[in-house]
Design a protein around this nucleic acid. Structure first.
Lengths: 180, 180
DNA sequence: GTCTATACTAAGATAGAC
DNA sequence: GTCTATCTTAGTATAGAC
């Protein structure tokens, strides 16, 4: 339906970029428009209001999250390992929308909070058959949440999120504690 | 140095309240002043700028966090159990400042990010002697981060944060996986 | 120590030219 | 489909009265 980086998508990319790098307050229509290389009026042709712009981001989140839920379900190395290790990914399209929508959520936006909760709940549903019990599911989901929030906060900078062999060791501990 | 709820503290309380409930964007000087029951000019007498107001919050965070680090170190039921269970506390002064500063951090505020990182690092230092290895420390810290971010996001609403017996079961799993 | 009044800037949004 | 110009409101901050 929209193959080339149409202005609409360029605007959405810019909104995402500014939200991630500088937060909600900096993500004004004017800043997003400038970053996207269009004028304020141009932006407002594609998204008639700030709310419409936000809704565009939620739509993107829903699409990418649905794909990821399928990837978790069918992961060769097992859902838990795949789920935890991809929580630590940075810069992938899904990771970026989640962080961006997270910025709006922490800004108190009820819609953004609900969208994130829905995605989280989809993941929990896929993982449930693969964990021992409810406490184990909590463990896996919370470790993933923890990795996400640290990545989102420390954006780029070397932070407290385990990488490489430390991440592999963490995954082993989680699988041993939670795996069915 | 300041026993009664002086205007300064009332303003800080209001700033915290608005940040938690409605996010950074809503926490304007005017809104905070109204919520504190003072005028904009009155607020600006105590905190000469928005930055000064934020710095007031960081100072409060540092004080309460230092107390909590001591409480974790000397907890009778063991540091890990105490640390995880108090991560799920909602409405306690420390929990509230952390959430409020978290709002600023997700708003891209570098100072807020650094303050939170410093507190997190103090906790890690206290817990390190009580866990098996680095992966175990990552596990404990990330579960706590996960609990925090869910509480912060779902503010009040019944969310995905385990409570009561579910929380106890989670703590058992974490202690078994991580305890030294 | 706290208020009112006001200056200045930038936000979201509309109108209309191109 | 995109731009410029403009309206309205709200943000931070200052000055000065009380």
């Amino acid at each position: 339906m929209s193959r080339p980086p149409h202005a609409r998508n360029k605007v959405l990319d810019a909104f995402e970029r500014v939200l991630i790098a500088e937060g909600e307050r900096a993500a004004t229509l004017e800043t997003v428009a400038r970053e996207a290389g269009v004028s304020k009026g141009g932006l407002l042709y594609h998204f008639g209001s700030r709310e419409a712009l936000e809704e565009g981001l939620y739509a993107r989140l829903r699409t990418l999250a649905a794909e990821d839920v399928e990837a978790v379900r069918t992961a060769p190395q097992g859902p838990i390992s795949y789920f935890i290790s991809t929580s630590a990914d940075v810069g992938l399209p899904l990771d970026r929308v989640i962080t961006a929508v997270g910025r709006l959520a922490h800004g108190g936006n009820a819609h953004a909070i609900a969208e994130l909760a829905a995605v989280r709940s989809s993941w929990a549903d896929v993982l449930r058959p693969h964990v021992r019990d409810d406490a184990a599911l909590d463990l896996v989901m919370l470790v993933s949440d923890g990795i996400y929030v640290n990545s989102a906060l420390m954006n780029d900078l070397p932070g407290p999120v385990p990488q490489g062999s430390a991440l592999e060791a963490l995954i082993k501990v989680v699988e041993r504690a939670a795996g069915a």
